[in-house]
């Protein structure tokens, strides 16, 4: 469930960070990085790449703080940067000719290792395989809505899509997700 955010505090922190206050930026990082890391984890499906992508996102955000005018858009602005970092990661992988996620829906039946079984929550395990069946863009839109609580207009801005496309993609993503999770959701509902 998305939590209410202290926008006044966001504004104050941003002003201080823009003025060069490193502590203010550290607070912003600790507040926002978990969501950015989870978003990149969902897109990249690689913990190490998601960690690196999160760092890269915040380094770029720091360089570009002056371009963010509205504190209330901080989170969607960060997701937008993270999305660009994700695309670059894909492009690098393509250049290096490493097998990659083509962006097409794939059927992944990844069996969790013993450590994962011990550590991962039931929700992680249930969602992991289901999200992998969605295309990257559709997955991004769905997690921005359901996991990060962004509104449809914010998602449209982050993804560079029309509002209608956001609605369509999230609707289709939900149908795919339900197909995969039918038994679980019916049991939970």
């Amino acid at each position: 469930m998305p939590q209410a955010r202290d926008r006044t505090s966001d504004q104050e922190l941003l002003s201080r960070a823009r003025a060069g206050d490193a502590e203010a930026f550290r607070v912003i990082f600790h507040r926002e990085a978990p969501a950015v890391r989870r978003f990149l984890g969902d897109l990249l499906r690689d913990d190490s790449a998601a960690d690196e992508g999160t760092q890269e996102t915040f380094v770029r955000a720091h360089q570009r703080l002056g371009t963010l005018q509205q504190a209330e858009k901080l989170q969607s602005w960060l997701f937008g940067i993270a999305r660009m970092v994700f695309f670059e990661h894909l492009r690098r992988k393509r250049r290096d000719a490493v097998p990659q996620d083509s962006g097409d829906p794939v059927e992944i039946d990844r069996a969790p290792g013993p450590e994962e079984v011990l550590l991962a929550s039931e929700a992680d395990q249930v969602l992991d395989g289901a999200l992998a069946t969605l295309s990257q863009e559709r997955r991004a839109a769905l997690v921005l809505r359901l996991d990060h609580g962004l509104g449809y207009p914010e998602i449209a801005e982050t993804m560079g899509w029309s509002l209608q496309k956001v609605k369509n993609e999230i609707h289709r993503a939900r149908l795919q997700l339900r197909q995969r999770l039918q038994a679980y959701l019916e049991g939970a509902a």
Binding site: P34, A123, L146
Partner: peptide, 20 residues
């Protein structure tokens, strides 16, 4: 669905700040 997403584990980001 919402409950599933809400119950996901939070990745730790503590180790990432020093690099940033």
């Amino acid at each position: 669905e919402q409950g599933l997403f809400a119950r996901r584990s939070q990745p730790s980001i503590d180790a990432l700040w020093p690099g940033v």
